[in-house]
Write a protein that binds this DNA or RNA. Structure first.
Lengths: 224, 224
DNA sequence: GGGAAGAAGTTTACGCCGTATGTATACGCT
DNA sequence: AGCGTATACATACGGCGTAAACTTCTTCCC
């Protein structure tokens, strides 16, 4: 007989939820044991029953993001098309929590969903013609680029407070507007785009396309 | 007549030097006002005369890295060859201080050397056929990828203590070695490369080539 | 059902951190 | 000489991660 779970007052999964919420609103620096504990009506030290230390908690956040990746089923499309779909699935999961997206990097080769994705990417790269070792290096670099695509998403920063966000944008705009168009003609011409790209979807689509194009490009060079 | 500088006891440039040293040895988290102050025989609060707050100090670190970029002179080589050289110069500067390389991102459009590099990159991209706005987006993404190339350099982490480094590598190796080769045949086959690439120079060369290849690739697609 | 065993949560404390506020010192200029 | 200002110091506050020792609650076995 399963007893009612009044005993386990603290659910680690819910703590991770809270931490993600805090990070989404105020950035990862705002995550603290004391604050999480307070949100769950518990002492800070209670969290140490469930997380070895703060790194362990952050690892759990990374694992959560990776678990949210919805890996597409293999098809009979070309390897690079399938790869693009896998990478898109990865980015789609990270986009939900851009401020902590980089926590996934260290967990990919540890968590089960991360390993599954890595293996799949290696499959597709070797199918495309890379050696196993080259696939490893190219795959790592691609993943790393896409993570930074998400963490540096110019439209996702400081979403918490729309007022602060507008202020920050105004300041950046002013800073670029103050530049001499003579000395920096292209930067001043592209100021709006540099500060904030036109479309978020286009931003991500372009980032993923560049990554896949880069992979195709080095493949051609390796093959001569 | 210039008096002897016994008065200005604290040189902000030297403080930045110290901070870079600390970050190189122990990571950016080890940088603290108190520690820097102690190293310079001064109180923590004295630093506030020279840096508005910690973000300001970190911005100064970013500016320092950007100032160390040695931008190659324009030549009459193809735009993409020149671009590769500019990006290589950028990466070369960042590699000196991989743990804080990401501090440059926010300073590129602020510091003079950063602006000079950005303008140069935009020039080459538009020469290649990108519109000004596309050049902005592609350039941003490239810079961001290269920064993450440096910050995630697998051979630069925890260089401080060779013993700890070896331990960490051993643990990772063991973790991958414990995987089922049946379920993860490619990951286990590439384990060594995934943990630590063969050559550092090759790692960086490949990263830069992928970036430039990605740029060429999306250019072709945009043009149809 | 009673009592041991262990897990979960609390208390307290230490040594860090960034930084707000107020005060003393010493130089450069008139 | 003396004033203004730049520089550095002293003190303090609230927050952080976490080590160690404690209480309390569950569970499970006899």
């Amino acid at each position: 007989m399963i007893t009612k779970e009044t005993t386990r007052r603290l659910d680690p999964d819910k703590v991770v939820d809270s931490a993600l919420g805090i990070a989404d609103d105020e950035g990862p620096a705002a995550i603290s044991f004391r604050r999480l504990a307070a949100q769950h009506g518990v002492t800070a030290m209670a969290l140490y029953r469930h997380f070895k230390d703060k790194d362990d908690l952050l690892a759990a956040l990374g694992d959560r993001l990776l678990a949210d990746v919805v890996l597409p089923e293999p098809t009979d499309e070309r390897w690079d098309v399938q790869l693009q779909n896998v990478l898109t699935a990865f980015v789609t999961a990270l986009r939900e929590h851009p401020r902590v997206a980089d926590l996934t990097l260290l967990r990919i080769l540890v968590s089960e969903p991360g390993l599954a994705m890595a293996e799949r990417i290696m499959e597709l790269l070797t199918e495309g013609g890379f050696s196993v070792d080259d696939a490893a290096e190219v795959g790592r670099q691609s993943i790393s680029s896409l993570i930074s695509l998400v963490t540096t998403d110019p439209m996702a920063r400081e979403v918490s407070d729309p007022v602060a966000r507008e202020d920050s944008l105004r300041m950046k705009r002013a800073s670029l507007a103050a530049l001499s168009p003579r000395r920096y003609p292209l930067i001043t011409a592209a100021a709006d785009t540099l500060i904030c790209p036109t479309s978020r979807d286009r931003y991500y689509a372009l980032g993923i396309e560049m990554t896949v194009a880069g992979i195709r490009g080095v493949l051609r060079e390796e093959k001569q």
